[in-house]
Structures are given as C-alpha cells and as structure tokens.
C-alpha cells in the first residue's frame, strides 16, 4: 500500500478538487480527509456514512461556583486567556488549553477537568472508495492528534481492503496538523499556484519536508495565469530536488463540476481533467517503481 498526502500550505490552490480527481482515478483506494478544518472532500465524493464515532481530545477546566470564593488565583496562573479577566471568574472554552494548572493550584479545589468532546468522525463509502472523514465542533482544537487518528484508521482500512492506495487530503498551513499528516507517508504532493504567495508557501513546505527528510513532488494549478512565474516556481523546486509532476490549466469547468457536486475528472471536455490524468499517470509511475 502506498500512502500519498496532498497538501498545499496556502489554501485555495485546488487541493481538494485535485484529491477528489486522483481518488476517482486511482483504482481501489482508501481516502482520508485530514483537512478537518475545511473538510470539503465529501462535497465532491458523496460519502454514505456507515459508522460514526464521537471523539474527545484533551480536557477543559470547569469551575464549581459553589466552592469558588473568587480569589482570582486561577486567573493569574492561566497563561492561555482561558479564564475571564474580571470576576466572576469563568472558564472561556475558546481560550482554555486544558493544561490543568488552575485545577491543581486552586486553593478551594473548585476546579475540575472534564474531557473535551471535539466532534465526530465517520467511516463511509464514497463514489471513489471507502473514506474516513470528520466534522469537528466549532472552535474545537484541531490538533495533530485527530490527523494521526485518521491516518491510523485509514491505514487499517486500506490493509483490510487490500487497497494499493491511500490518498490523504492534507491540512493547510505548516503547523502541528501538517506535521502529523506528512510524517511516515510514502510521498507528499504539493499543490501550488503561479503566484508570489504560492511560491513563498511552497518554499516553506519544502523546508518542512527537508526537516523531516521526506520526498515531495509539486504540481502547479492554473499554471497559465502566469507562465513565467510557473517556470520560476518549477526551477526553485527542481533545484531543491522536488520534481514537478503536473501542470493544470485554469478551467472554469472546475467550478461548474463543483456546483454539480462532482470532481472535474468526470467532465469529458475539460482541459483540467486531461492534465490531471497525465499527473496521475506520472505519480502512479513514480510510486509504482520500487
């Protein structure tokens, strides 16, 4: 089984649309949507949910008002804006990181820690194969923990089904969730665009991959918006040993396919679809060679 993670650093480069196409092209693949913050893959692959599991991650402080004498000690100790700045002291769920400091040091033992319900994750069957995805609660912490859990579940599923491919729609940015999603994968596909911001973010991702000694590939979406920039980005990547496996042209069909809730690969006359087929052939060839 080969695990391919699709990430982009910068949002809006078409990562999810591309992942949906690759999932449709790959025969017998298992799909994991690890972009839990902006989970959109289900809008293109219409999964039917088979199992739902709530997940808890970390803890949150709760003050027992009957014991609290408003001494304010907890407020002074909390380093995370987790407790209201003025009395009556209450826990602010959006700030509390569950560090336990207030609970441990409250002179009245008025604070306890409760598990934090973060959302639900699903095992589904989608139009492109078995799929793992989630819905996280508003404002819940999106730690790398959830991403790790997903990949572990998806791998298990891929092994059970003897799938040759595991495709992961990765999280944005460069922080904790991304680090959790790329470590240990067979290959990372970076989706970028020919803009200064795209270039800037791609370089930061390549730094990250180097930091973890991982192999990456890039593809450039909407490359024809600025062919010169496309060339520059390609050169920068290739100098760092990251080869370009595909160039996808700007195509209004990507949006019209999205409005029909389908990946653009289904539109036979789409120029983006043709380029994505070539891209998949390249990735397939690279990852199938031992």
């Amino acid at each position: 089984m080969k695990e391919l993670i699709v990430i982009s650093g910068k949002g809006g480069t078409g990562k999810t649309s591309l992942t949906a196409c690759l999932a449709t092209l790959a025969e017998q693949c298992v799909i994991a949507d690890c972009d839990v913050d902006a989970a959109n893959l289900h809008l293109l692959l219409s999964p039917r949910v088979h199992h739902r599991t709530p997940f808890v991650s970390g803890e949150m402080a709760v003050i027992d008002e009957t014991r609290c004498n408003q001494c304010g000690h907890c407020q002074q100790l909390c380093r995370f804006e987790g407790i209201s700045p003025t009395p009556p002291y209450t826990i602010l769920p959006s700030g509390c990181e569950g560090c336990r400091v207030c609970a441990h040091f409250c002179p009245q033992q008025a604070i306890s820690m409760v598990p934090r319900q973060c959302g639900e994750w699903y095992r589904s069957v989608s139009s492109a194969g078995p799929m793992i995805h989630a819905r996280i609660n508003v404002g819940a912490e999106n730690s790398g923990k959830l991403v790790s859990l997903f990949r572990q579940q998806a791998r298990q599923l891929a092994e059970e089904q003897q799938s040759p491919w595991l495709l992961v729609d990765g999280p944005p940015g460069l922080g904790c969730p991304v680090i959790a999603s790329v470590t240990g994968a067979d290959a990372v596909l970076i989706v970028t665009e020919p803009t200064l911001a795209g270039q800037h973010d791609m370089v930061r991702i390549i730094d990250l991959l180097e930091h973890f000694s991982m192999t990456g590939y890039i593809c450039i979406n909407r490359w024809d918006i600025n062919p010169e920039m496309t060339r520059t980005i390609r050169q920068i990547a290739e100098q760092r040993g990251v080869s370009c496996v595909g160039l996808i042209p700007f195509d209004r069909q990507v949006v019209s396919a999205q409005l029909k809730a389908r990946p653009v690969i289904d539109q036979p006359d789409s120029i983006a679809a043709m380029a994505i087929k070539d891209l998949w052939d390249n990735v397939h060839a690279i990852l199938s060679t031992p």
Partner: peptide, 8 residues
C-alpha cells in the same frame, strides 16, 4: 485559515 485555535 480554518476555524480552530489559531483563528479563535
């Protein structure tokens, strides 16, 4: 981006 702790 997103809606988790960096945004809040």
């Amino acid at each position: 981006p997103g809606t988790s702790c960096p945004l809040t």
